[in-house]
């Protein structure tokens, strides 16, 4: 950096046209002094500022990528607990005496363990982990929270989005839990949950371990703040999911029921294979 900062800026001597044979004397910093200096301080200040900002953005992004957290976490929300006033106001089934809810809504991140706890088996419709107003005058009131999602302060959680909003008789499949007890003990054994990340090759897109019926809106469970954290997708901006991810178990291919088609299928000759390709 030049120390000659007292020299004022002056246009170079018009008569002193540099000859082509002149090699600029790079060892001196005279060309940087004066006019150049404030600007260069500025540049450096700006540059380092930008570098610092960039570094900060990078770090934040990296951190988010590694550990997707509720953006409100920085406010240190209170530990999840059943909201007391709810328990009193709930129109509980008359025989109930104590607290009702099992999977208490309130922790801010949905975990896979809690996800499965709400389901009798993988693929079953989850039970409703919060109480509902039964007689509320609207059959699809659930969609007011579950069609778009959003933060629900009452439960300190994000409402999960339904992957099948066109089915509007919600309580036909999803029911609340008004007690933890059973009528008689059950010997029910659920089968093991689908394993995650059964990729064919290292780095392959993992196959879909669940059925696609009523679950074609991948973003509803795999992206967004209400997503289950273990299956949150690192690339939600890519929206043609089925281009890379395929179901692992195939259901039998669709069969036409008409007898004509069945007869055709039965008598079909084996497919004509494409010509044998020589290895390059």
């Amino acid at each position: 950096m030049s120390t000659q900062n007292t020299q004022h800026t002056d246009a170079p001597n018009p008569s002193a046209t540099p000859s082509p044979t002149d090699t600029p004397n790079l060892s001196t910093t005279s060309s940087l002094s004066g006019e150049g200096f404030t600007v260069s301080y500025g540049f450096i200040a700006i540059a380092s500022g930008m570098m610092l900002m960039g570094a900060w953005v990078l770090v934040t992004l990296v951190l988010q990528g590694i550990d997707p957290q509720d953006p409100h976490k920085s406010h240190n929300p209170p530990k999840a607990a059943p909201v007391p006033h709810l328990a009193a106001a709930l129109p509980a089934t008359p025989t109930l005496t104590n607290a009702l809810l099992s999977a208490t809504p309130g922790s801010s991140v949905r975990s896979l363990q809690r996800f499965y706890k709400q389901r009798a088996y993988s693929g079953a419709p989850p039970h409703i982990p919060h109480d509902i107003l039964e007689h509320n005058g609207q059959i699809d009131a659930c969609l007011s929270c579950h069609s778009q999602g959003g933060y629900v302060p009452k439960y300190n959680a994000f409402a999960p989005i339904t992957p099948h909003p066109t089915y509007t008789n919600c309580v036909q499949c999803h029911v609340p839990q008004r007690t933890q007890s059973t009528f008689r003990p059950s010997a029910w054994k659920a089968s093991p949950r689908p394993q995650l990340r059964r990729t064919a090759l290292a780095g392959s897109p993992p196959p879909i371990p669940h059925d696609l019926h009523m679950r074609t809106d991948c973003n509803a469970c795999h992206a967004g703040p209400a997503a289950v954290k273990e299956i949150r997708v690192p690339h939600p901006e890519r929206s043609n999911c089925l281009q890379c991810h395929v179901p692992r178990k195939q259901v039998p291919p669709f069969r036409s029921l008409s007898p004509l088609h069945q007869r055709l299928e039965k008598n079909a000759p084996p497919p004509t294979p494409s010509p044998q390709r020589k290895r390059p």
Binding site: L201, P273, P275, Q276, K278, R279
Partner: peptide, 23 residues
């Protein structure tokens, strides 16, 4: 593979899936 491809009884061979390198 060469043996398979050149087998006189083979009409067509289609490779489906493979893992070549053990990581």
């Amino acid at each position: 593979r060469t043996y398979l491809e050149q087998h006189h009884g083979l009409l067509c061979l289609a490779m489906i899936h493979g893992q070549v390198e053990d990581p």
